[in-house]
Amino acid sequence: MNSSQINKIKNLGFKSFAIVCTFLGLVVLAVLLYVVFSQGLSRIDWDFITSLPSRRASSAGIYTALFGMVWILVLTVIIAFPIGMAAGIYLQEYGKKNWFTNFIEVNIANLAGVPSIIYGILGLELFGRVLGLGNSILTGALTLSLLILPIIIVSTREAIKAVPKSLREASYGLGATKWQTISNVVLPSAFGGIMTGLILAISRAIGETAPLIVIGALVYVPFVPEGPMDEFTVLTIQIFNWVTRPQAGFVTNAAAAIIILLMFTFMMNGIAVLIRSRYNKKTKF
């Protein structure tokens, strides 16, 4: 066999291996979904969704966890979106290339890599203890807000960066001030990109567990929270709790709750993909 034939065989060998690798990831995903659905799907009914938690697996539900999650998400959105977008706008449109913006940039890159559990420790001390908010919904939302801030800032910047310079110039050329240009031209043009980032940030917040455990979110909450200062639990913590119980019934419950959780996660990601593709089609400059 000459070297060219050997090379061909190597090439083919790698190609086959690579295809196996590529599908392995997808197969694991498929198996995961199958395992979850086969165990949990039959457990989902209206009672499961509207029942309070219980010591008996068969009568336990996710009612309070769902409400807790919605509370947390709504507050997180209200807190994190304006701050994240504002910071993204500042860094992309106002920040000159100097040590200050450079420093903020390094800082954000760093924050994006800080493990989420560390945010939990920050939330526990800063919001829970120093500001005296305890283990309330507000503490949870503030903590998650800080956690998703880097995601929002980075995606806002990327979206704004994609707006052509010529549009800004047209606006400045007509005598618009900086903020008029940003609010009337730049932000509407970047809307799709910004929304995509925001939705992915929500998706991230939905899936978080560790920081909320650390700030002291409860496992057992027998009432629906009525205000931001109430104690709470969320779907992920409920799942964590059920997974770690020895009785088989709770594992089924966990699988069922995971199906609901994945529905939210995939819905968010689907919406993001949808917005991205629609927006890409609509505004070709």
Binding site: T22, T209, L262
Partner: peptide
């Protein structure tokens, strides 16, 4: 097609992976 599909792996909440590791 494959790249975004693989990225779904990173979007699945980690507690779900915990469940998968422990029970399967």
């Amino acid at each position: 097609f494959v790249k975004p599909t693989l990225e779904v792996l990173a979007a699945v909440p980690t507690v779900v992976y915990g469940f998968f590791a422990l029970t399967f």
